[in-house]
């Protein structure tokens, strides 16, 4: 493993498999009454969140605490950051505190790359702008592997606002590394103009993709996009690209439905689909802690590079 986890592209197939295998073992720890491990005693993990994301922050926090690391939550709101302190100065402060790892969530694509220039510890990308969210992709891959056994040659269809989705970018890279076949489905306005250079298939037709999918991953679509003319109305979006009961019925019987959350019920996914037995949405949350434990252990559990 490298020192940082910033992009899913940083992970070789061996790296990614090691993370998933480690998570498999750690999942057993989550099942026992004492969930804590002493492994990262004396290590400090800083959660540096410039964007509100309670879900992701508590997931990292739980992961770090289960490994006995000290956790400092640094939220940009109400801190010196909101008073105009630069990312660099924040980084130097964390550096002075002796952070062994900084988990960063930022609205600017590339912020974790910049941060890595200014701190000695490991940088873990917890979502940067519209770029990447590698631990989300890892937990998605982990969830798929547990449900489907393997990812090799599995057909994964990712549906929605690919253009603005860090989840989609990380998933395409990681799933490709792990041997899955990815198809992106979206209205053309919500795909990058050069999407054909990505290692995946692209389609505008959800109904054509569904019967050939082992996994259907729905992305959150923000209704603000409507105002920027990406699509005419929420209703039209939902009709063409939403996953409802009829569409669920067109998927193979053992295919699963995923969503990184938070969901817009009734927009990209119908409530009854989100809550059905083939939906892994709750599992994904639990797996998030496990995969983040694996990442923190592999980044911080060994010698300091």
């Amino acid at each position: 493993m490298r020192r940082h986890l910033i992009s899913a592209a940083d992970l070789s197939r061996d790296d990614a498999t090691l993370i998933l295998d480690t998570a498999d073992e750690l999942a057993r720890v989550s099942d026992r009454s004492i969930k804590k491990l002493p492994t990262l005693r004396g290590r400090t993990v800083v959660n540096l969140f410039f964007e509100d994301s309670t879900r992701t922050r508590i997931s990292f926090e739980a992961a770090a605490k289960r490994l006995s690391a000290d956790v400092i939550n640094f939220s940009a709101k109400g801190s010196s950051v909101s008073k105009g302190e630069s990312l660099k100065d924040t980084a130097l402060t964390l550096q002075a505190m002796g952070a062994d790892a900084v988990v960063i969530r930022h609205s600017a694509s590339g912020a974790p790359h910049r941060l890595a220039n200014w701190v000695d510890g490991s940088v873990v990308n917890a979502g940067d702008g519209t770029h990447e969210h590698p631990t989300q992709a890892l937990l998605d891959a982990f969830t798929m592997r547990r449900r489907l056994g393997t990812l090799e040659d599995r057909r994964v269809t990712i549906v929605g606002d690919v253009l603005h989705s860090r989840v989609a970018r990380s998933n395409v890279l990681l799933l490709n590394t792990l041997g899955a076949q990815v198809t992106l489905v979206a209205p053309p306005t919500l795909l990058p103009v050069t999407v054909e250079s990505w290692p995946c298939e692209v389609s505008y037709d959800l109904d054509a993709a569904l019967p050939k999918s082992d996994v259907v991953m729905m992305l959150r679509v923000q209704s603000e996009r409507m105002n920027a003319a990406y699509f005419p109305s929420a209703r039209e979006y939902s009709r063409r690209y939403g996953l409802d009961r009829d569409r669920l019925a067109r998927m193979p019987e053992d295919a699963i439905v995923m969503h990184p959350g938070p969901m817009n019920r009734g927009m990209e996914i119908a409530a009854e689909v989100a809550d059905c037995a083939r939906s892994t949405i709750v599992e994904q949350v639990a797996n998030g802690v496990t995969i983040r434990m694996a990442v923190l252990y592999l980044l911080l559990g060994g010698e300091t590079q």
Binding site: M1, T39, G302, E303
Partner: peptide, 21 residues
Amino acid sequence: LDITMYRDDLRLRPARPLGRT
């Protein structure tokens, strides 16, 4: 019983893969 996560020499080597408990 895997003892990797309880070792006192973890920081002397790169992080190791876990065994099964």
